[in-house]
């Protein structure tokens, strides 16, 4: 007997409608800036706004710094845990999950309390110091995603044997990490990096409370004061995030074909 496909199709259509209708609505609204015709006027206004360029550039730079710090922190940690301290894995996993359960506002108030101008390390005293604090905050925020991504990459290769093979050929730790481990988990690192990028680009709480000119607070500012531009910005942010997801898929697929033996 032929099974009815009505149910699955209905579920799929409902699901797609749930996600796509608001998106299409936002897109449609963002194109109605000129009366009586569809245009990309709102996008032109947004992209031509110097504050957009500044805040977007600021967030991109901060995202790159966050990725660099995150990779240098997470890869050696995950590598060491896998190689020498496998019993510590649950503890490390728990720690990396904490940013998901502790609200960002709690973390940032903690930072302000710890690193204010009266503290022993007054990072908030200068703009550069605050930028650094913001980058550290973003590293924390992205930790669950970066750690999981890198850990999955490390599990896909035989870390112990590759390390021992390199050691027996005279390699030290730096050579092993940068010549053997990093290149073999490159796609996993890139996946983590794109997720981090997507998080940093849209982040609001940290940047607003630390009073830094990032893209998130700019989104909020425009959203509170303009009509069509916020919709255009939402679509732009969406495209950036989706581009990151697409790149993760591309590099994920590359890893899949590259690991054949």
């Amino acid at each position: 007997m032929k099974k009815s496909t009505f149910g699955p199709w209905l579920a799929m259509i409902l699901g797609a409608a749930y996600f796509l209708i608001p998106l299409i609505g936002t897109l449609e609204f963002s194109m109605r800036m000129k009366r009586g015709e569809y245009s990309f006027e709102a996008y032109k206004v947004v992209l031509g706004d110097p504050r957009f360029q500044e805040s977007f550039s600021y967030s991109v730079v901060l995202a790159l710094v966050t990725i660099a710090i995150g990779v240098l922190l997470v890869v050696p940690t995950a590598y060491w845990v896998q190689l020498r301290l496998p019993k510590l894995r649950p503890v490390v996993e728990f720690v990396t999950l904490l940013p998901l359960v502790i609200p960002a506002i709690v973390i940032v108030f903690g930072y302000l309390r710890m690193y204010n101008s009266q503290s022993w390390l007054p990072l908030t005293d200068s703009r550069r110091g605050t930028d650094l604090l913001l980058a550290f905050g973003y590293v924390t925020l992205a930790l669950p995603y970066m750690y999981r991504s890198v850990d999955t990459g490390l599990r896909a290769i035989d870390v112990r044997t590759l390390t021992e093979a390199a050691e027996s050929l005279g390699a030290g730790w730096a050579t092993i990490l940068f010549k053997v481990i990093f290149p073999n988990i490159r796609s996993a690192i890139l996946s983590g990096a794109f997720l981090t990028f997507a998080i940093v680009i849209g982040e609001f709480t940290f940047a607003a409370l630390l009073d830094r000119p990032a893209f998130g607070p700019y989104l909020q500012l425009v959203g509170a004061n303009r009509a069509y531009e916020p919709a255009a910005l939402a679509i732009i942010a969406f495209v950036v995030t989706w581009a990151c997801m697409g790149l993760i898929q591309v590099f994920g697929a590359a890893r899949g074909t590259g690991s054949k033996s």
């Binding site: 044997t161 093979a165 390199a166 027996s168 030290g172 053997v180 290149p183 073999n184």
Partner: peptide, 20 residues
């Protein structure tokens, strides 16, 4: 001595060639 200083070559069951 650490493995790198022993002047010993090793071949593993799982080949352990560097995939990259």
């Amino acid at each position: 001595l650490p493995p790198a200083k022993r002047d010993v070559g090793m071949v593993f069951q799982a080949y352990a060639l560097f995939p990259n």
